[in-house]
Design a protein around this nucleic acid. Structure first.
Lengths: 203, 203, 203, 203
DNA sequence: GATGAATGAGGTTTCATTCAT
DNA sequence: AATGAATGAAACCTCATTCAT
């Protein structure tokens, strides 16, 4: 059985991805050379190319795999038992936790999902955005359900509510990232929900 | 008097900046060469370097000047006469209009103001972000005033309300940019305010 | 007038091509680096790329321009006044002279026209071969004319006679190149015609 | 006795050489990697280096062994019983057959025997050319004998006749390879002799 | 003052070869 | 003995910047 070999290879791959994540996050795609990644990961240049077809591929895999982890966690949060409010709170809490423990990826993620990144062929942004929209739909369905259950007020489109919630959460997390003194939020993730839902909940 | 000379130079500078804006917005900083900018602006390479110290300087000036325009317009919107609600509505409408007439700059703006851009030394983002926070403070003061006037409910911090409003507006504008079919918002910029302020306004 | 500039550029181009010809002929396409060409031509690497899109383009231009010179000279030889025999002798003499004064290009030429070169996309070989066949047709028409005039015996196809003559000339020139002691031919280019045409000429 | 071992090894060597021949012929020395040869031969890279010192050695052995086969067959053709004309016809027929059944090697052979190949150190071409000249001498001796026997006209040097015959045969075979529609020769290899010997044979 | 030809550092990528397993 | 992962030198090419004209 060659499973040890394979486990080793997987570990090396993870190592490269971890180093690449750190570097890309710190300096941006174009300001990181393959030499640098190889050096910091303590591999020869050629070894990187055994794992990834080229620099772009390395970046793409990195972003896609990381995003997948994020969205899977978000999806799971929404699937937990509880009423709509509880689901949403769970999502916000999960997002907060993930942000806090993946700070180095956040900027890359935002770059890709907000479309401010031209580093890479449009394809990647498209893929990421597709996944993002799929999640938004899921989030919207929670609002939808809440509205149907009369738990929420009858408010415009559920999708837009999802967009609004998500953007607020993002910006508060970013605020915490950029100016922690202005936003102690992550220590109390629910506060934001209160702000947003004042008035959303049907009295 | 050499004022005609000076006027001409200013026009040339504007021309270069306009071309650079288009190209950087379309392809991103690293995928645009100075050759390309010079060519499209119909100047010699050397001439660009008479106006801007280097590529980074060109980008920096471009972003800063454009942002300044944005924030000046936002500031003016908040200064118009009217109660807090009217000021906020005016701001949202102004932002919508500016976005719609500066589509090519939006992504650069978002990238720089939200820190998802690594194109340039941290300095630039810092400068832009400082200006952004200054505006947020101004926006927060409107909320503050509304709360004090009892026009708004007594809700947490005004700054956070500013952040929340701004992020919602941004994300709806982005949504309109990315998926116009999902968000006809720009045709009715006030709708979003209704969503956001349901519950904010003291009944 | 910028004709001096242009003359200079042309000279530089010629210089690069001359150096490239020497190097490619000596070592072969794959064993010559652009660094080497640049160095020997005393230009910076970047300058080479101002004149030629890439290494392959440099090679292609080199081969095509040189071949064109050859075939033009051959064509002219066949167009000179005189009977068929004289035309053919003139061609053989011309080819001998050109070979002797372009030794460094001969091997490249043979590589391309004989199809033993994989250095470059099939395109180039095709282009060269097309030109070669066009010349063969012209050569064949001389044989044709000689046969019709009853100056030559009624012998199979004129095209094949052209092929035969050309290949004999080539191999004698190569022989002289490789083993001059075995073939003093170039000093007496007509000897070969005698060999080939013994029996061709109608008595 | 380890003869089974040895037989196996020999087979493996043959297998590698066969794959290498195919690949080098199709794409050229520089466009084939050792990885590719190993892969297609279904050996590990390391195993190739057990059989051949390095890439160049593999190529050298390949060319030399293959050429040896060619020239052995040519030599044998000339040694068959019969008068000079029959020997020469036999040689031409043999060469045609060998070419037709070794198409993939032809270009490599021509490249190496005529010096249009720079893939490899001069040494190889020299070795091959030596063998080629040796064969030419043998061919020349047939002409010599024909001249002495008064079967052929008294024509200049026999060596040159050998060169001429060989080059004509080569170019007709190449013509058939490149433009079969222009040369149905291989189906009737003797036709070319008729062309060449019109006038050579003493009436 | 304006030009744009020239520069060359530095980026990405390939692939022959080695050597621990 | 066979393997193939790892290596890293060296190739091609781009582009920000300079400076002689």
């Amino acid at each position: 059985m060659n499973s040890r070999r394979e486990r080793e290879k997987l570990l090396q791959r993870q190592e490269i991805l971890a180093v690449a994540l750190t570097l890309f996050s710190e300096k941006g795609y174009h300001n990181v050379s393959m030499q640098e990644v190889a050096g910091k990961a303590e591999f020869a240049i050629g070894t990187l190319y055994k794992f990834f077809q080229n620099k772009e591929d390395l970046y793409r895999v990195l972003v896609l795999e990381e995003c997948e982890k994020f969205y899977d966690a978000f999806d799971r949060a929404l699937e937990e038992p509880g009423d709509e409010i509880e689901k949403l709170r769970k999502y916000v809490r999960t997002k907060g936790e993930i942000f806090r423990s993946n700070i180095s990826f956040i900027r890359l993620y935002l770059a890709e999902s907000r479309g401010a990144n031209f580093a890479i062929k449009r394809d990647l942004s498209d893929e990421v955005r597709k996944r993002y929209f799929a999640f938004l739909e899921r989030l919207a369905s929670v609002f939808d359900s809440g509205i149907k259950n009369k738990r929420f007020k009858e408010i415009s489109g559920a999708f837009k509510l999802a967009v609004a919630l998500d953007s607020i959460v993002n910006s508060f997390l970013l605020l915490w990232l950029d100016a922690p003194e202005l936003n102690p939020y992550p220590e109390d993730p629910d506060a934001i929900l209160d702000i947003f839902f004042k008035g959303l909940i049907d009295p």
